[in-house]
Design a protein around this nucleic acid. Structure first.
Lengths: 142, 142
DNA sequence: GTTAAATTCCCCACGATTCCCCACTAAATC
DNA sequence: GATTTAGTGGGGAATCGTGGGGAATTTAAC
């Protein structure tokens, strides 16, 4: 499980450390240790899928409304890149992906269970304000 | 049952002791002794869920209005941190959580039955004034 | 095709943080 | 008053994030 929030800094070369807890789950639960990273189709962030989840996504694409499929393929499947963290646990995010999430220096990692998201810290903070505002009057009954 | 109020001090390293009575109930009523700690979605405090209650929360997320779900996931589920108190019964809260509750030194623990809340002492005191004011003209009939 | 420049990859190194253990003090219990 | 328990502090080892150097590879330029 990918859980928790972590902020790391991207250096001048464009390298960012994957948070250690995420590396651990990747290593222990996902044999090949590889990550497919692509853009989110409806938020300003990137989503990292371990191989198993990436396959599930591809299966889901086949099930989605035919009209949306080409859009989704171009927007999400095509720009995806395969990563394996280097010995220091870092990845090098380049070009298209970095731009889509407006990544500059402060990079925010957010665990979402089977995958995790990669945000620019400022964007995340902004999003969080919106989230909390939307929940202000919500009462959870359990 | 988590019941009562307790104040402990966070040290320079960011460690806080869980009040002994809470540790006891955790140990006797919750086999794994683990705590999920996360943001409260509508108050300036943190909420600690034993595993069983955490599962109930996750079930509740599936039942909540679809519009709110992504907000709730980002604001509450993602930042959650899993703890098992160390040998001294302390935990080390991550920056994100510490900030949400504005925790500095005096940390206030408030039992709420199946879960308990973690407040900055000053915020708690302030909240209490509001609570009492709101109840000023209320007559309880029972 | 050859050379130059830029990029990427791999390794080492430093500083900060975190984790784990031990110790002290004050309060509670017997 | 002696003994246990709770909260707090600190030291040292290990881990993590981050910067930088240099080799290797790719890309661009002539």
């Amino acid at each position: 499980m990918f859980q928790g929030e972590f902020s790391n800094n991207m250096d001048e070369k464009g390298r960012v450390s994957i948070p250690a807890p995420f590396r651990d789950t990747l290593k222990t639960h996902h044999a090949d240790g590889q990550l497919f990273i692509t853009r989110s189709h409806n938020t300003d962030c990137l989503i990292a899928y371990p191989t198993r989840e990436w396959k599930r996504l591809q299966a889901a694409v086949k099930e989605m409304p035919a009209k949306l499929r080409p859009h989704f393929k171009r927007a999400v499947i095509t720009p995806s890149q395969l990563f394996s963290p280097d010995k220091q646990g870092r990845i090098l995010l380049a070009g298209v992906l970095r731009q889509h999430a407006s990544l500059s220096r402060a990079v925010h990692f957010a665990g979402t269970g089977e995958t995790f998201e990669i945000w620019d810290k400022a964007s995340w903070d902004k999003q969080l304000v919106t989230d909390l505002a939307a929940l202000q009057d919500f009462e959870l009954d359990m």
